[in-house]
Amino acid sequence: MLHDFTLDVRAGELLALLGPSGSGKTTLLRIIAGLDFPDRGRIIFGGDDATRVPVQKRSVGFVFQHYALFKHMTVAQNIAYGLKARKRSERPDKAEIKRRVGNLLDLIKLSGFADRYPSQLSGGQRQRIALARALAVEPRVLLLDEPFGALDAQVRKDLRRWLREIHDRTGQTTIFVTHDQDEALELSDRVAVLDRGRLEQVGTPDEVQEHPVSPTVLKFLGDTIEVEAIAQDGKVLVNGRPTPLTAPEGLVGPVKLYARPWQLQFAEADAAHLTGTVRSSYRTQGRQRIEVDRPGAKTVVVEASDTARLAGGREVGLRIVDGYVFP
């Protein structure tokens, strides 16, 4: 279920549709492709209204999460499918089809695999074939539905980088759906964050990370702690102590303050905004993360590079050095 919104996709950009499951991102992608139909609203491709154009004529390349390769066809036949399905008058001749399939196999670095069947390939290879098959018809827009969702972590990372390369080389307008923030932020030119059928924010990865427009976007883009605060005279106070944050214009009274794990610091009790006891600490990807239990409130995660392992049960104070304020 989607609510009303307008999303402008620029020619040649790589746009990520990011959202939790059930946010409507796949529905939106399928509507763009012509596989589903909106009750109202329009889909416009470069000035042409495509809302009533059937899927065959939309000229989209669609890559499915589970590849949807044709099992009974070889890799080369899969890639050539779209070209061979054309009307005789628009169909390239055999040699041309063969040449294009060859070029695409080069592009996806699977040149020796033309005569294999999909069942003989790994997941990552299958997804590359699926991409080549979609590119073969020279679509106006390439649509990828959770393209790396079914792959394991390492392959997923390799394919991400590889997709970015392909995009940079072909300049193909591309929209891809993901629920993985890292994937969206790493790969895309712009990110569109969807939640419960609403478009929350569109912007570059930097914009959405630095200036999230709502708590929803903020929370979805990474670990967040939430603290009750008071806005007063343009300042934001937590536990009666001022923070470095300034309150947005016209915001007075109780507000919510959100901070990332790295926007908290350990501090002496007389300078701390929050206090709690250390529950556990662990190291992940070169950073130390400490879970702090607060009485009567949610456990917070603090990320600090300068501390040694803190013993569990220790009383600590926390200072908020940066964050986001919302009503």
Binding site: L35, Q56, V60, G61, F62, F70, A85, R86, A130, V137
Partner: peptide, 9 residues
């Protein structure tokens, strides 16, 4: 669906 997006009737 894949076949349809590739232009097949």
């Amino acid at each position: 669906e894949a076949a349809l997006t590739l232009g097949a009737s």
